[in-house]
């Protein structure tokens, strides 16, 4: 049987370790300190994001297992067998529901959650789980943004601004934000949405070209927004896939944070943004404390933007 060091041996990666002779309150501190380590925070953010935004079709037992895993984070951080065992069970339960429901009903971030749980499990079996997870996370973030960017370049109606013009003039989420910042007049796009719903599903509405009320500012700005989106997503892909060194490596955090704020400020998808923040923490080349603070801020920002969008 292979003898491998437990992750405890990788403690230097994991921040300060409490002395065994901790004073009163030390036990509580020992319990919570693992949550504040890099791996502990990656697991915590991943599991909380999963619980808030589980893939469609998820069985209740998978959510219960995720709560259990969240409570067991101190053991998952310090003991490889716990990590592999608990995450193995969680992955099987988490995948069973969505994969037995219509696959075409799953969003891309639902798949990414399952990929990420599998990555957390498999890298836990390596000789250096922290370094292995960092490499896997960089690949996964980079590949997601490569495919997202290539798709936007492949399809003409993104680069010419058609999709963003359409969303700016019909999407309820975008409209709420744009009204709040004074870009749109209130209720300007409600009639557009009404027209579109009828055109899509109501056989009594003739299937013919339908005029929309398009705010001229949105029509004018959409192509520039589209190009900026492609450049931003391309920058995230490059930052995570290229072997950048030194200050250039900070492009990872800068590009990802910018993407999260710009994109989820308009179209909040917490399940995707929160997961990217957790993966970004695992991938980060920053030292533990600044890495945790930066990515916790990303995660909280996405959560905050989602809450604000719901309130508007």
């Amino acid at each position: 049987m292979t003898e491998e060091p437990t992750e405890t041996a990788a403690a230097p990666h994991e921040g300060p370790v409490e002395p065994p002779t901790a004073n009163r309150g030390g036990r509580l501190r020992r319990l919570f300190t693992p949550y504040l380590s890099r791996t502990g925070m990656v697991l915590t953010l991943t599991l909380v994001t999963y619980l808030i935004s589980s893939p469609r079709g998820t069985f209740p037992v998978a959510r219960i297992a995720a709560v259990g895993a969240l409570l067991l984070v101190p053991w998952l951080v310090s003991d490889r067998r716990w990590r592999v065992g608990v995450l193995g069970v969680l992955f099987v339960l988490a995948a069973a529901g969505p994969l037995s429901s219509p696959l075409l009903d799953l969003d891309n971030h639902h798949y990414l959650k399952l990929y990420w749980l599998l990555a957390l499990l498999l890298t836990g079996m390596t000789s250096d789980p922290v370094a292995a997870l960092r490499r896997t996370a960089r690949w996964l973030i980079g590949l997601v943004f490569v495919f997202a960017t290539v798709w936007k370049l492949l399809v003409p109606d993104f680069v010419d601004g058609s999709l963003l013009t359409y969303l700016l003039t019909t999407d309820g989420n975008m409209d709420r934000v744009l009204v709040a910042v004074g870009w749109h007049e209130a209720d300007r796009t409600i009639e557009n949405r009404h027209e579109i719903v009828g055109l899509r599903h109501d056989p009594t509405v003739p299937l013919e070209p339908t005029e929309l009320d398009m705010p001229s500012r949105s029509v004018a700005v959409a192509p520039a927004l589209a190009i900026a989106t492609v450049l931003l997503e391309g920058a995230v892909a490059v930052a995570y896939l290229l072997p950048l060194r030194g200050r250039w490596e900070r492009l990872q955090e800068i590009s990802l944070f910018t993407f999260l704020v710009v994109t989820y400020g308009l179209l909040p998808v917490f399940g995707f943004g929160g997961l990217l923040a957790a993966m970004g923490l695992a991938a980060s080349g920053l030292r533990d404390r600044p890495a945790i603070l930066v990515h916790l801020a990303m995660w909280a920002t996405v959560g905050g933007l989602t809450i604000v969008a719901d309130l508007l």
């Binding site: 075409l104 798709w151 999709l163």
Partner: peptide, 13 residues
């Protein structure tokens, strides 16, 4: 393109 785990969301109408 939005479906099927190809990450083509928000790329096309």
């Amino acid at each position: 393109p939005w479906r099927g785990a190809g990450f083509g969301m928000f790329s096309t109408m």
